[in-house]
Design a protein around this nucleic acid. Structure first.
Lengths: 132, 132
DNA sequence: GCGTGATTACTCGGATACAAGATGTCCGAGTTTGAGCGG
DNA sequence: CCGCTCAAACTCGGACATCTTGTATCCGAGTAATCACGC
């Protein structure tokens, strides 16, 4: 039970894009350089973000990844869902919808997701700058 | 990023003990029978709960597992921590304590844990009975 | 100067390799209960 | 009837085997900008 490194990379990448290049594309090699990840692997992760509509990719020379629309609205939850999937964290192994444990776990999960949904990446970017 | 089946088994076992045998020991075979798990595997999981002080084991004939003290206080979080460990769900790969992403994730996690800490197994047991 | 083709710098996607953790099984060892047996 | 022994029913713990998932790499294909060359 841990968040994957992929989620970590994705979050940092978005944060970097918002802070350093809100309106232009940046190559995956440069993005990977800041995080000590292999460019090919990061590319694979970012593809998920593209499919989720959070960013867009530009092929060819001077290509790369760029934020796509409504920057202020990207929440931490959006990124997590794009990378980890939207499946629930807890599944009762006997598929009982009325299982009280399952209900409790779902409620706890919703609590966390609500928090992450209200935490916008743009705010974190500002916070990071202010802390420096 | 998912809760393990082991956590699932542990939660259901505790729930069963509270509902059916708050004061006596029940053999692992009987406990496993209700959940379609192999007794040996369930035993391995329950050992973690014993080490966490939530239940105690009795060796020998008529042995098994029994709830240990203060039944009303066992929370869902206690069990999860016993099985999954208490480590944080999110670790920033560059070990930066001031990482804003890490801070946000920890805060969200705390939100969920607070909820799970306030959800007592005894209450879930009552709820399960009432729903029947 | 201008179009055309080659070169270069990229991303994309699939296939594959590798590692770690979750899941599950097996077996020997220790422990308690209870039955059986002999005095 | 008492006490001893022994077998049965348990849990405990470690050592494996297996399966899934996360992590990472490699390579061929496609794409866009740029450069070189010839007209």
């Amino acid at each position: 039970m841990k968040y994957s490194k992929a989620t970590n990379y994705a979050l940092h990448t978005i944060l970097y894009l918002i802070a350093h290049a809100p309106d232009r594309a940046i190559g995956v090699q440069q993005l990977a350089g800041h995080q000590k990840v292999s460019p090919t692997y990061l590319s694979k992760i970012l593809t998920k973000l593209v499919k989720a509509g959070l960013i867009e990719s530009a092929s060819g020379a001077n290509g790369g990844y760029r934020l796509k629309g409504k920057i202020e609205d990207i929440s931490v939850l959006d990124i997590i869902h794009a990378v980890e999937g939207t499946a629930s964290l807890f599944d009762c192994h006997n598929d009982d919808d009325r299982c009280v444990i399952r209900q409790a776990m779902r409620a706890a999960e919703d609590e966390m997701e609500e928090f992450l949904k209200n935490t916008k990446m743009a705010d974190l970017a500002k916070k990071a700058v202010a802390a420096k």
